[in-house]
Design a protein around this nucleic acid. Structure first.
Length: 498
RNA sequence: GGCCCUAUCGUCUAAUGGUUAGGACAACGGGUUUUCAAUCCGUUAACCGGGGUUCGACUCCCCGUAGGGCUACCA
């Protein structure tokens, strides 16, 4: 028999009066993988789309892997992206704590229930003995199944040995996944897995099921490595006589060459590294949302609110995708372009060199240009560095007088004439209305008659002394009238040397 | 070894039996331009292979192939 979805996978809140509850359940390992964040995002979107509840649950049942400060790290990562939770480590729910290490009693209670039903027993073997069974099976090219070694009679569990689950019925399981459809697995997928470890902590396999039950989770969103273990979960659901939630399996995020899953060693970054590099949360969120999901339209740019509105389980993809930093850069550029001057300044502030503050007039005049050129916020460092496109702002670089001559028509005498005329025109401009537009407007007629290259190249070089820069009008505006005229004077001196 | 999942341009993806296989990033070319960038316009580029089913398959089925995952007192 094939299980059908228990409830409509979308719009449950609206249709069935059942409140959608999703959760993101990371382990505190100190690293927030981009794929984990994608899982969190989808869980969040599904909950919010249905006016449901999103829970952040910390699965800290493995003391060896735990890294101090991880909860703070996880919280910061999610907050940065605007993925906020209704219940979390800082905010217990009606079901109690959202930190598994603080829920040990609950797992004990359910463990006892299983023992009472005859579905759990202490593992009588030493780890070495179990390992031996495993090796034997491997040598015989057989799948290792602990249940083949299940003791005939069960001892009383005193808590010092691992507590194992006794699979109620060995059978082929069929189940429904909201993304993958009908799935199945053979009997070898079932085994007497460990419920509670000898250190008293539950395993993931056990704890997450109890928590999802207690927290009334309706949809489990998770990566596809859990498909294989789903029969185990189902057999546990059976033993506990509870209905499983809706399984929503997300496609994996692979390396760009698709040779393997994107891991730390393949350059997978912690999500907060993107913040450090100057990516906006909107851009990261947008890109992530589009890996493994899309609205079926040609829309690419989505705000968080638009994502919530558009998100549908049916549009989640089955095949694995990859995280493309070039596209992230494009998204980032889009979002930076939309930033107000004030917001741009606050984002840029930490990357600014010491000589430039966000409150300085020069910076304010440079903002539109910076905003246009920056791909990621940290780029402002390069752009403002001595060799950067706006490096000339701090001070006029040393340049040779020959550079003042336009390559196509190198004429010192003409250049002096042009620069003098340019100086005269700029001098006549009012400081109040000094803008790149007004400067261009004033200079343009002369530049057109005398030749744009002849006039504008020497001017740009006089102001910047460098090969690459914005156009001379912008440069003059950013420098201000006084500085502009000073630099032109210097250039005129240099030209006389020729 | 066993079990499971997946397969459209280089990348992210659309298509749910009938399309000139669409969009985006990247690449390339062009317009604009004193330079670089930005911007605008355009071009190149894909149904993993083989069998079925069907009047008709990217779409459904089977077999290969390739990739991924699980096979822990990790999650």
């Amino acid at each position: 028999m094939i299980n059908t979805p228990i409830i409509d996978t979308n719009n449950i809140g609206a249709d069935n009066n059942v409140k959608v509850v999703t959760r993101f359940a990371p382990s505190p390992t100190g690293f927030m993988h981009i794929g984990s964040i994608r899982t969190a995002l989808f869980a969040y979107l599904l909950a919010k789309k249905n006016n449901g509840t999103f829970i952040l649950r910390i699965e800290d049942t493995d003391k060896d892997r735990e890294v101090k400060g991880s909860i703070e790290h996880i919280s910061q990562s999610l907050k940065w992206l605007g993925i906020d939770w209704d219940y979390g480590p800082d905010k217990p729910g009606p079901f109690g704590s959202c930190v598994q290490s603080e829920r040990l009693l609950t797992y004990r209670i359910f463990a006892q229930k299983l023992i009472d039903k005859g579905y759990a027993y202490p593992d009588p073997y030493t780890p070495a003995e179990v390992e031996e069974f495993r090796k034997q099976a491997e040598a015989n090219k057989q799948p290792f199944l602990y249940r083949n070694h299940r003791p005939k009679t069960f001892e009383t569990w005193d808590g010092t040995k691992p507590l194992r689950f006794k699979v109620p019925e060995i059978k082929k399981y069929h189940w429904y996944d909201a993304v993958r459809g009908n799935l199945e697995a053979g009997e070898e997928a079932l085994d007497d897995f460990i419920l509670i470890k000898s250190d008293g902590f539950p395993t993931y396999n056990f704890a997450h099921i109890i928590d999802d039950l207690n927290m009334s989770v309706t949809h489990i969103l998770r990566a596809d490595e859990f498909i294989s273990s789903t029969p185990r979960f189902l057999s546990l659901y059976d033993a506990l006589e509870i209905k499983p939630p809706v399984f929503v399996t997300l496609p994996p995020i692979l390396r760009e060459d698709h040779t393997k899953k994107l891991g730390k060693r393949d350059g997978a970054k912690d999500v907060l590294e993107y913040r450090t590099e100057g990516f906006l949360p909107e851009a990261v969120l947008n890109l992530l949302a589009l890996i493994g999901w899309n609205p079926g339209t040609t829309q690419e740019l989505f705000s968080k609110e638009e994502l919530i509105k558009a998100f549908e389980i049916e549009k989640i993809q089955r095949a694995g995708g990859s995280f493309n930093e070039e596209k992230l850069a494009w998204f980032n550029h889009q979002y930076i372009a939309k930033l107000s001057s004030e917001n741009f300044a606050s984002h840029a502030s930490i990357y600014l060199p010491e000589w430039l503050s966000t409150s300085s007039p020069v910076f304010k005049r440079a903002v539109p240009t910076l905003r246009e050129k920056v791909i990621k916020m940290s780029d402002v460092m390069d752009i403002l560095s001595p060799k950067g496109e706006l490096g000339f702002i701090k001070e006029l670089p040393v340049y040779s007088s020959e550079m003042l001559l336009w390559k196509k028509e190198p004429d010192p005498v003409a250049s002096i004439t042009h620069l003098k005329k340019v100086k005269e025109i700029i001098s006549g401009l009012a400081e109040k209305t000094f803008s790149s537009e007004s400067i261009k407007l004033a200079l343009w007629p002369y530049a057109e008659t005398a030749g744009k290259g002849n006039v504008l190249w020497p001017l740009r070089m006089a102001l910047t002394g460098q090969e690459k820069s914005p156009d001379p009008f912008v440069c003059a505006y950013i420098l201000g009238k006084v500085e502009t005229l000073e630099r032109i004077d210097k250039a005129l001196e240099k030209l006389k040397e020729l």
